[in-house]
Amino acid sequence: MSAQNSQGIQTLLDAERDASKIVQKAREYRTKRVREARDEAKKEIEAYRQQKEDEFKKFESEHAAGNKTAEDEANKEADAKIAEIKGDGKKGQDKVVAELLKAVFEIKPVPPTAA
């Protein structure tokens, strides 16, 4: 009976050891699968990000051409206005300088008024 009990105990220990190995393999497989899923998700996220970035660049390039044209037109108009203002300033420049010098050199004293 003792040998039979010993044999049964040994069989149970072997079964427990085998079960432990199976559980360990299952854990390793699950860990490996989680890593693979995470890596796969990262790849999908990167591909999606790249796709959206490409779409944005395409949209930006399509609409930037219109903005560039409007910007160039606005710059041309501003340059024309600046040139016009400078031209008008140069036309009256001599007269303004002469009047300023006249006002500085011709002194006209005015008596103070009692208030």
Score class of each variant (00 low, 15 high):
residue 43 K to G: 01
residue 9 I to P: 00
residue 26 A to V: 01
residue 15 A to Y: 08
residue 43 K to L: 02
residue 19 A to Y: 10
residue 30 R to K: 15
residue 6 S to L: 09
residue 23 V to P: 00
residue 50 Q to F: 09
residue 46 E to L: 07
residue 21 K to I: 06
residue 38 R to Q: 13
residue 6 S to C: 06
residue 48 Y to W: 07
residue 38 R to F: 05
residue 36 E to L: 06
residue 11 T to Y: 01
residue 49 R to F: 03
residue 17 R to A: 14
residue 34 V to T: 11
residue 7 Q to A: 14
residue 37 A to Y: 01
residue 32 K to I: 02
residue 36 E to I: 02
residue 15 A to T: 15
residue 12 L to W: 05
residue 39 D to G: 01
residue 24 Q to M: 02
residue 28 E to V: 14
residue 48 Y to Q: 12
residue 37 A to C: 01
residue 46 E to H: 07
residue 24 Q to R: 09
residue 6 S to H: 07
residue 32 K to Q: 13
residue 39 D to P: 00
residue 42 K to P: 00
residue 13 L to E: 09
residue 12 L to C: 07
residue 18 D to F: 03
residue 24 Q to P: 00
residue 41 A to N: 03
residue 49 R to W: 04
residue 13 L to W: 01
residue 8 G to S: 15
residue 33 R to C: 11
residue 19 A to N: 10
residue 7 Q to D: 11
residue 15 A to K: 13
residue 13 L to S: 10
residue 16 E to T: 13
residue 22 I to D: 10
residue 40 E to D: 04
residue 9 I to M: 12
residue 38 R to Y: 08
residue 15 A to N: 08
residue 33 R to Q: 13
residue 52 K to F: 05
residue 45 I to R: 06
residue 31 T to M: 08
residue 29 Y to C: 03
residue 51 Q to A: 14
residue 25 K to Y: 03
residue 49 R to Y: 06
residue 32 K to G: 08
residue 30 R to E: 12
residue 31 T to P: 00
residue 49 R to G: 01
residue 16 E to V: 15
residue 42 K to W: 00
residue 37 A to N: 06
residue 51 Q to K: 15
residue 42 K to L: 04
residue 31 T to V: 04
residue 13 L to F: 12
residue 9 I to F: 07
residue 15 A to M: 12
residue 36 E to D: 15
residue 49 R to N: 10
residue 49 R to A: 14
residue 29 Y to L: 12
residue 11 T to M: 07
residue 25 K to Q: 12
residue 34 V to F: 03
